[in-house]
Amino acid sequence: MDRNLTVNAAQHSDIEGVLALLKKYHANSISDEDRKDGFVTTNIDAVQLAELIDKENGLVVAKDGDQVVGFVIAGSWQFLQRWPMFEYMTGELHKYTPYGEQLDSNNSYQYGPICIDGAYRGNGLANQLFDCSAQIMAQRFAYLVTFINKINGRSYAAHTRKLQLDDSGSFGFNNNQYHLMTLDLRPLTA
């Protein structure tokens, strides 16, 4: 298949494609067959995605021509605190010092989810999405922070092996257990 893949900061015209991928791979709607290959748990709507684009520059998309085939979300803790999980995490950041500096809502941001259509996985697209997003966010933050549900082994493997994130601890929320993953972005701006 001849593919014309691009990876860039999202535009409003990309929102519909992002929502379609979210629905396809969301934990609440993913097929049992696809679940073993990973899933996303973030609930975000078109208005919130538009705000993420406008206020945070926090949505990066991969496109094959005009079709969105992957995306990654990133945002400040201030932006994300409207969701209970992120509000909780903001209050927990101070417990972690993965690079010799205490994490807080000013020096770190939340990365994820990342989602790639199954037909496009395994070709380095996750790295391209991740790198583009990290470069954008490194202009404002020293540290990337994310979390991965401990039952999502594929995601954990991808983030530790392919994306080189550090497992900096664990926490529980809403009857689930999570890995707290981090990355020092300071080398990107040095």
Rank of each mutant, 00 (worst) to 15 (best):
R3K: 12
L5R: 03
Q11V: 09
Q11R: 13
S13V: 14
I15V: 15
V18S: 00
L19W: 03
L19S: 06
L22F: 07
K23W: 05
Y25Q: 03
N28P: 04
N28D: 12
S31M: 01
D34P: 05
R35Y: 13
D37M: 07
D37N: 12
G38R: 03
G38T: 09
V40E: 00
V40L: 03
T42A: 10
V47S: 00
Q48P: 02
I53T: 12
D54I: 08
K55R: 14
K55D: 14
V60I: 15
A62I: 10
A62Y: 01
A62K: 04
K63M: 04
K63Q: 07
Q67P: 02
G70A: 01
G75F: 01
G75H: 00
Q78E: 12
Q78V: 13
F79V: 11
L80S: 06
Q81Y: 08
Q81K: 15
R82Y: 15
R82G: 14
R82N: 10
W83R: 11
P84T: 10
P84D: 04
P84C: 06
M85V: 13
F86Y: 15
L93C: 08
H94A: 12
P98C: 12
G100T: 15
G100E: 14
S105K: 15
S108N: 10
Y109N: 11
Y109E: 07
Q110S: 14
I114Q: 02
C115L: 10
I116Y: 05
I116P: 09
D117R: 10
D117W: 08
G118H: 05
G118K: 07
Y120M: 05
G122W: 01
G122A: 02
N123V: 11
Q128N: 03
Q128R: 12
Q128K: 13
I136R: 00
Q139P: 08
R140V: 01
F141G: 04
Y143C: 12
V145W: 01
V145E: 01
V145G: 02
F147M: 09
K150P: 11
G153T: 14
G153R: 11
R154C: 06
A157L: 11
H159L: 06
H159W: 04
T160F: 09
K162N: 13
L163W: 09
L165S: 09
D166W: 04
D166A: 14
D167R: 12
D167A: 14
G169Y: 10
G169R: 12
F173E: 00
F173I: 08
N174A: 15
Q177M: 03
Q177R: 08
H179K: 08
H179P: 07
H179N: 14
L180Q: 05
L180F: 11
L180P: 08
T182L: 10
L183Y: 13
D184N: 15
L185T: 10
L188V: 09
L188W: 02
L188A: 06
L188M: 12
T189W: 02
